[in-house]
Simulated assay, not measured.
Amino acid sequence: QGRFSHENSVVMPDQKTVFLSDDGTGVVFFKFVADAAGDMSSGTLYAAKVTQTNGVSDPSEAAFAIEWIELAHGAEADIEAAIAEYDVGTLASPSYITDQQINDWAEAKLSQDLDGSGSVAADPFTDDRPAFLESRKAAVALGATGEFRKMEGVVINYGLADNWWNAGAADGDQAYMYMAMSSFDKTMADDEGDIQLDGTHGPCGVVYRMTLKENAGNVDVDTMVPAIVGGPYYSDRDVNECSVNNISNPDNLAVMDDGRLLIGEDTGNHENNVIWVYEDPAL
């Protein structure tokens, strides 16, 4: 399902769709849709292209519309065969996919000149291996957003989501998916690209809510809305740089059966790490 810093992934009740988070700085939000329910051996990998609320930089108000960019379809056997081709490399003479090859692969897929060379490159591969072996770079080359910061995992309550999916949104309670960003500074607050938040309190983190939807028979999401933002952040303090009355560096999340959200911290900005229970006003 792609090569990146997998933090936590979650399989949806359609047994086909998997949302995957990527832990790091300048990273990508991925989605995998299997060809067949209950069988993850082949399917299509997507990456999120987000559009921030126009003119809004306040992290407590700035939402993101999500467009899913298709990277490629792949099967385990084919991906394993592609990986094996690079086993010939050594530390002294490594064998790998180069940035130029990724650019050329993307140009061929998009039929666009991406590097300003004046022409569209020929595809250097007979398959879509960059999508699975260099997923971040491939996603960004195709136009996805590679600016997320410290993406710590994505979660649902499976029982609530399954009830919503099988009973129908009109009958079952709406289920939500949540994602923690331990921080939203640096690449999410650098005034460049798709994400341009006010990073004043960025070191304290944010938790986003995503409404589950049905799309062509699969579970999907098309928006990320801030559920709770950490802070304020006090840079002049020696301890408790993030307010002790709010979350700091949210990490592990769990949705309880009543929909409330457990938020576990992994922080150096609180003297003591805390587990919070969040009653989301959206419930």
Results as ranks from 00 to 15, higher is better:
residue 263 I to C: 08
residue 244 V to T: 14
residue 263 I to F: 07
residue 242 C to Q: 01
residue 251 D to T: 13
residue 245 N to R: 00
residue 234 Y to H: 11
residue 263 I to H: 14
residue 243 S to Y: 00
residue 256 M to E: 09
residue 246 N to M: 01
residue 251 D to H: 06
residue 248 S to T: 12
residue 236 D to L: 01
residue 238 D to W: 11
residue 254 A to Q: 13
residue 243 S to I: 00
residue 261 L to S: 15
residue 254 A to S: 10
residue 245 N to Y: 07
residue 246 N to W: 00
residue 260 R to M: 10
residue 239 V to E: 13
residue 258 D to A: 02
residue 263 I to K: 11
residue 247 I to N: 00
residue 253 L to R: 05
residue 233 Y to M: 04
residue 235 S to V: 11
residue 239 V to N: 07
residue 251 D to Y: 12
residue 247 I to G: 03
residue 262 L to T: 14
residue 252 N to I: 12
residue 243 S to T: 02
residue 249 N to K: 08
residue 237 R to V: 09
residue 255 V to S: 05
residue 235 S to N: 10
residue 253 L to D: 09
residue 240 N to G: 12
residue 247 I to A: 09
residue 252 N to R: 05
residue 244 V to Q: 04
residue 247 I to K: 03
residue 252 N to P: 07
residue 234 Y to M: 12
residue 241 E to F: 06
residue 237 R to S: 12
residue 251 D to Q: 10
residue 259 G to P: 03
residue 241 E to Q: 13
residue 260 R to P: 07
residue 237 R to D: 12
residue 256 M to H: 12
residue 253 L to I: 13
residue 238 D to C: 04
residue 237 R to M: 15
residue 239 V to Y: 10
residue 245 N to P: 06
residue 237 R to F: 13
residue 254 A to C: 10
residue 256 M to Q: 13
residue 248 S to Q: 03
residue 263 I to Y: 03
residue 241 E to R: 15
residue 259 G to Y: 01
residue 238 D to T: 07
residue 243 S to W: 01
residue 254 A to W: 07
residue 255 V to W: 04
residue 262 L to Y: 05
residue 260 R to Y: 03
residue 241 E to D: 12
residue 252 N to K: 04
residue 243 S to C: 06
residue 241 E to V: 15
residue 243 S to V: 04
residue 235 S to Y: 05
residue 240 N to K: 08
residue 257 D to K: 13
residue 239 V to L: 03
residue 257 D to R: 11
residue 237 R to N: 11
residue 256 M to W: 01
residue 258 D to K: 08
residue 238 D to S: 10
residue 257 D to A: 15
residue 260 R to T: 14
residue 236 D to W: 05
residue 260 R to D: 13
residue 238 D to R: 09
residue 238 D to I: 04
residue 244 V to Y: 00
residue 248 S to V: 05
residue 258 D to R: 05
residue 261 L to D: 11
residue 259 G to L: 02
residue 249 N to I: 02
residue 249 N to T: 15
residue 258 D to Y: 07
residue 236 D to K: 04
residue 235 S to D: 02
residue 242 C to S: 02
residue 233 Y to N: 06
residue 235 S to L: 02
residue 258 D to Q: 01
residue 249 N to F: 08
residue 249 N to S: 03
residue 260 R to G: 12
residue 242 C to G: 10
residue 238 D to V: 13
residue 234 Y to N: 14
residue 257 D to Q: 15
residue 251 D to C: 10
residue 249 N to L: 02
residue 236 D to V: 09
residue 259 G to D: 06
residue 248 S to H: 02
residue 234 Y to I: 14
residue 241 E to H: 14
residue 239 V to T: 11
residue 242 C to H: 03
residue 263 I to G: 12
residue 234 Y to P: 07
residue 251 D to E: 15
residue 246 N to E: 01
residue 239 V to P: 02
residue 241 E to I: 14
residue 239 V to Q: 08
residue 259 G to V: 15
residue 262 L to R: 08
residue 254 A to M: 10
residue 252 N to A: 13
residue 253 L to H: 06
residue 247 I to E: 02
residue 240 N to V: 15
residue 247 I to L: 06
residue 240 N to H: 10
residue 245 N to L: 01
residue 250 P to Q: 05
residue 257 D to H: 14
residue 246 N to D: 01
residue 248 S to P: 05
residue 262 L to M: 11
residue 240 N to M: 11
residue 240 N to C: 14
residue 250 P to M: 02
residue 258 D to M: 00
residue 252 N to C: 12
residue 260 R to A: 05
residue 239 V to C: 12
residue 233 Y to F: 10
residue 249 N to G: 06
residue 254 A to L: 14
residue 248 S to G: 05
residue 260 R to V: 08
residue 248 S to A: 06
